[in-house]
Write a protein that binds this DNA or RNA. Structure first.
Lengths: 203, 203
DNA sequence: CATATGCGTTAACATAGGTTAATTTATTGG
DNA sequence: CCAATAAATTAACCTATGTTAACGCATATG
């Protein structure tokens, strides 16, 4: 019973988010309600595994996820943190139906709605509102990546960390430091050095 | 007369490209033919200026363009090279109707078709085929950016140059070395060092 | 033809950030 | 609540890449 109420509540979060992007007719709302599944992940659970074609794209209702890459030498690189009210997948692989290079894990207990690939593609052509929403999401992803590209290209580590604090306020308290370091493309030792002055003043 | 023939020929390049992405009904083809403009840029011409809201998005029929950023200290960073058969704009700014942070210039004499923003948005809602094409383009841009993010994050300069040679075969001969260096996020001196061994063997 | 200008190369030196390892501080599980 | 483990800090040292500057080659200009 608890779960059913919960689904209703979380579904409203999703709907409110979608409605903020485009008008969705009532019968389309009914339809989406039928085809998305709610998923509860425990801290540490993998949502998407490298080497597999991602089945799902998700919308995070609560919790926090991390998209990361493990190279041949076993080094772990964080590509992205995904918070509440955001879509999450290994998009490039999801879109192109390739084996994912990336893993996606829950860093906290996480609740999300998921849709599988076939339904997703069918879905998008069902009504123009969905394609519009998808397009806006893609535009947003693109803009985010373009910004990040700029930082990585022409800002030093200190500046990138300052920018991270702005872009994801509060996240530095929810996430292990070495994940943040690898997101910034620097070593944990180096991030610790960068943070040292912060600790002295306010923090 | 020369120009008219030329327009016809170039327009076919555009159409062939669009048709490869989605089926376009004949009357939509007629329509697009009416609303896009052909533009001839001389080597060195600016297509988009930083500080202005980009009016146009373009499709390159022939030539080569460079997207770059000038920081407060006047340093010049290359974000992207755009070749034939690709769309070009300062997308983030074009999409969001912001002042562009980026400049776009022709590195060679360049021929492109352009569409202005209002027509573009109207256009997209006109027929589902256009939204589909736009979506595919966005997906492609996103995938490219995601790849590049990976390189910038976790590969060293030598590897990034090798990757550049793979991603843009032949471009290293069309483009000044210091533009390539800034695209890779390294100094021209450093790129010269990286290239030195290449020169000794084959080239 | 002579000169100026722009670009690429090379060398010498400087520096941001990486690596390793020892030490301290948190977190987790019994 | 304590022991074990994981995470963060700090220091010493190392390396890739940046910076500056001198030089050479090519191309464009008077």
């Amino acid at each position: 019973m608890k779960h059913l109420e919960n689904r209703e509540e979380n579904f409203n979060l999703l709907i409110r988010y979608l409605q903020s992007i485009a008008d969705i007719p009532d019968d389309e709302l009914e339809y989406v309600k039928k085809i998305v599944h709610i998923k509860y992940l425990k801290k540490g659970d993998l949502f998407i595994k490298a080497g597999e074609v991602p089945e799902f794209c998700g919308f995070i209702c609560s919790g926090l996820m991390r998209v990361f890459y493990i190279d041949e030498q076993g080094r772990d690189f964080t590509k992205l943190f995904n918070r509440e009210y955001n879509f999450v997948s290994s998009y490039a692989a999801f879109i192109e139906r390739n084996e994912s290079l990336l893993n996606v894990e829950a860093l906290e207990d996480t609740t999300l709605f998921v849709i599988d690939y076939d339904l997703f593609r069918m879905f998008i052509d069902r009504h123009s509102c969905w394609l519009k929403i998808y397009t806006r999401a893609l535009e947003k992803f693109y803009v985010i990546k373009e910004r990040r590209e700029g930082y990585l290209l022409w800002q030093d580590a200190k500046t990138r960390y300052a920018q991270f604090l702005k872009d994801f306020p509060g996240l530095e308290k929810r996430v292990k430091q070495y994940y943040i370091a690898s997101y910034l493309g620097i070593s944990p030792v180096s991030l610790s050095r960068i943070r040292a002055p912060y600790a002295k003043t306010a923090d």
